[in-house]
Design a protein around this nucleic acid. Sequence first.
DNA 1: GCATGCGATTAACCTCGATCATGACGATTC
DNA 2: GAATCGTCATGATCGAGGTTAATCGCATGC
Lengths: 249, 249
Amino acid sequence: MLTDRFLRDRRGVSLEAGERARLEAAISTTSTVEARKIIARAGEWLDQSTLLVEGIMSRYLDDRDGLRQLVAIHLPGDFVDLHAYPLKHLDHDVGTMTPATIAIVPHVELDAITEEMPELTRKLWFATLLDAAIHRAWLFRLGRLDAIGRVAHFFCETNVRLQSAGLSDGRQFTLGLTQADVAEICGLTTVHVNRVVRHLREEGLCTFRNGKVEILDAAKLARRGQFDPAYLYIDDPASPPLPDQRPRR
Amino acid sequence: MLTDRFLRDRRGVSLEAGERARLEAAISTTSTVEARKIIARAGEWLDQSTLLVEGIMSRYLDDRDGLRQLVAIHLPGDFVDLHAYPLKHLDHDVGTMTPATIAIVPHVELDAITEEMPELTRKLWFATLLDAAIHRAWLFRLGRLDAIGRVAHFFCETNVRLQSAGLSDGRQFTLGLTQADVAEICGLTTVHVNRVVRHLREEGLCTFRNGKVEILDAAKLARRGQFDPAYLYIDDPASPPLPDQRPRR
DNA sequence: GCATGCGATTAACCTCGATCATGACGATTC
DNA sequence: GAATCGTCATGATCGAGGTTAATCGCATGC
């Protein structure tokens, strides 16, 4: 199904069969989009949202000089601009990085879901908050890590996310991004990303060639990027147990 | 009312009287908290959320060395950790910056609201997505602006937000933050924040003394920080004295 | 009176990453 | 075949901002 990867293995909010069917029924059309195409522009009124089925998409802000800051990259299974449902206008552009397959969900369908299925509504809400949690990790990355740490953190994050989508074996994955894309994600120049990639390769942490990442030493890479996957809310029995179940104060 | 400032003057989602009353009724307790106190820790299970009535709060991530990256600051009227309702565990700490008055909303009350009032639910959802939009502006700030631009952008944003809460006249406001706090927000050192503040003062853009910001030239300040308030989704674009109101893209 | 402590300020030094430039390589298009 | 373009690679130079440390102003407390 088109929604198979949506909220897969997320802590406590994976969809019931009926919920998944309802969401699947909410899809109006499916289409393929070529690479580097804009799907929605900042400020535009939206009455539908986009579920990414295949390919890589991104959300970004442009500065005055046309330089671009990516604020999110999206992998198959992501509900790319579900937040447009409550917001109606976006504060950023949305576009494809690679050729992509997308499924369209009209907001009238989401109206119906929010009227009839509060539990599913909460799960959709959760999905948008997961994106916000990733925003926060990106803030940490830009605010507190140096160039090498930023790229290391990004590769770790993407590896875990792709793995939970069944698109990485944990050791290598194809991303289809260029060094310039990584620069726009990590707030660096392409020239410096190139040097960072070389450094990571020479230190035996990972390689990045032709849009393909190979992780050579996952532990070291995670340490270098101060990466802790808790913010991804993935349902992994191996992940560290959550502390302290009592209410605050 | 305690909820008076919540979603005030936000585009298309301000609360109806009945909705506000329902939210007000959902508050279980109110309390005051001293400055620099932690309200919720990362990873902790939460069954209630916090509405900020008075004072300044923040959300932040710590790095390995104890350095801190703020990911949000919250002003009166903000539903600080409403996202804990769907998420249940937070990926960051929540604390007060100044002495604060908070109202507690148990999640069981939010369960009832989501069952009975889909429209209000959508507005609560909107509120959490507004925080995400601010996260994105912060990503832009850290990724694409230099030190001076970051501080300028932060002051502009805070001015507009405080103004919509009725706590700034658009020219000056009291924030209660130190230069070290601004450093943790902008991904800089306190030493460099000090240099930036001096620069902004000498250029006649704004001053920052004893936690009080005075805006001397709003237009220049906004330009320097590439600040465009669209992402705050405020209802009346005319009221904040915002320069450089170029139509969005 | 003095001690203590926090925040703001400033100076000296140094490093990380930006900037500018150039070239190699492969994939197109003509 | 030549020409063009996108991506990757690498060197040289420079400046923004980090690091360290000392000083000052102003509270508060004894």
